[in-house]
Nucleic acid binder design. Sequence first.
DNA 1: CTCTTTATGCTCATATTGAGTATAAGCCAA
DNA 2: TTGGCTTATACTCAATATGAGCATAAAGAG
Lengths: 328, 328
Amino acid sequence: MGAVRPVSPGIGKFTPQPSGLHDTSFPDMTTQMMIELIAVLTAVRDDVPQVMTIDHGRLLPSGPLESTHRSLQAGVRAWVERQTGHPIGHVEQLYTFADHDRLLATGQGRLIAISYLALTRSHAGETGWRDWYDYFPWENTKTDAGRDCLAIIERLLCRWVADMDNAAARVRQWQRCVTLFAIGDMVAWNDELVLQRYELLYEAGLVAEAGCPPEDAVPGQAMHHDHRRILATGMARLRAKIRYRPVVFELMPEEFTLLQLQRVMESLSGVQIHKQNFRRLIMQQQLVEETGGIEENTGGRPARLYRFCGEVRQARQFVGTKIPLFQP
Amino acid sequence: MGAVRPVSPGIGKFTPQPSGLHDTSFPDMTTQMMIELIAVLTAVRDDVPQVMTIDHGRLLPSGPLESTHRSLQAGVRAWVERQTGHPIGHVEQLYTFADHDRLLATGQGRLIAISYLALTRSHAGETGWRDWYDYFPWENTKTDAGRDCLAIIERLLCRWVADMDNAAARVRQWQRCVTLFAIGDMVAWNDELVLQRYELLYEAGLVAEAGCPPEDAVPGQAMHHDHRRILATGMARLRAKIRYRPVVFELMPEEFTLLQLQRVMESLSGVQIHKQNFRRLIMQQQLVEETGGIEENTGGRPARLYRFCGEVRQARQFVGTKIPLFQP
DNA sequence: CTCTTTATGCTCATATTGAGTATAAGCCAA
DNA sequence: TTGGCTTATACTCAATATGAGCATAAAGAG
């Protein structure tokens, strides 16, 4: 296959000279190389987190880096906004992949995939949106369906480790299963380990992407290539981020009740939150202010409407949001 | 200049077909493209955080992606270990840059830079190591030199905003200065905002990389290209990470006293820590265990030696380390 | 009018954290 | 040898944060 560079620059051990990379003259050291931009575009609809897909839910929206894009971030932003018609509040880079199993079809050169997490607000009547938990049902620990799925996984993982020849590996891998899936209540469930859990299932051959026949696989829809893995990366990032940065508001409508906000946080993290404590924490951080409006259709007493504080956003841009996420 | 791809694949709005990217046949849609790997390799020596450099401290170690590398991570790891001779405990991706101002010298194609943070232990007698704070003296808020530097920056930033024509911009930018540099004690200093502070100084034209003459620049050594910016990214990542993951131990020797551990944390974050509370927190998390050894040369009462808990490392891999970092 | 539902205000025990006091155990110089 | 200096280590205490629950308010349904 085509070498990325004919000769390694051979940076000697601690040599003070700059590597050839930084010479002003630069001959034809380039190679066939494809840069793909992949977006995990997330929105929340009816308290359900969703992801934008193409190809009947089998692929994340993705396309090549174009020469008109001023930067990677600008490329993803422009391109995603063109697709959704909505301004994107938040775009951040997730990860860059370049493994050998992602070769160009010619067999020449490499495919580099740069993935991004993007958040948007509403998307009424648009197609292509799928629920997060269609792909990762076991991550929805808030629901019975999620708990059922976890029970299945527990059984399958148990069989996987039992079939191992090496006793030491058996102990080590079972330890890993227990930690990641909170088996037996020895460890608490950690909602941020979406990627690690998916990778364990992949290694155990329990997902279709690992070449496992559908009837042996864990519940959850598969995707082409490693797109489900990239979705897992995005979910993990968002779950981590909502704990210490006010990014949830990028997903909320202009006005919302505190219970709506709580439901969004719960569905994103898949974890229950104590209502009164949640209110206390949100209020004391002064991230929201009353709009004066009232939401009537609550099914009970009407609720006050709030909006995200714009002024505070400026100053508190880097101040953490503390969200009380605990286990039921 | 050379187009990344002759024709955009034109993914229609929510079209169910996969983008052309994923077709099995893939003609010559590649282009001249250069992938550069850049490492922010950090170690701590005599309680001073250091970074590995080449070209007399003007460049971070960097080299092209080679076809022999199985993956990006493997490439960085193999290549860095070849240079330092030490095994790298921790390698993580930082960020991928691909801006138009980083073109190949031919003017054809784009330069993609993928940066990594790497940690290593000791490096006795090796050249190329430079102190973090040679490049970012204002980040060393623990020392008088750092505070002096901050005072200079405060004056320069004040002049920068005062010279602005637009009153609204003046207010907004001054608000930004106050937030990022904790001017006037309105906001607490946030040690994780290394990158944001550097970017503000860059925008204000106060660093040499922004084309500012050396005599007008803020103290601190400049680097070629955007390498100082990448270093800032790495410092910020490490400062954030040591708060909730036990990565410090990758930088510590096999055995250490609790004060040594504290000093490393302090010098990494540039922030003072209350000694007794630090001990309490480290001990109660059971991340370390006594080796039985004693360190005599403390200048006072001898101190017990500890090591990082290996067994716990496995189970607690994802459990956070809580480090009490506060302001003096 | 009562029951159900959600909203919102308030209490209380416990855990965590910031800060300080007290004592121990080494070295060194007078 | 002793007093003074240094660092190590053990506790204490107050302020705050957090987890959990009780109580009341205000709507609609029957």
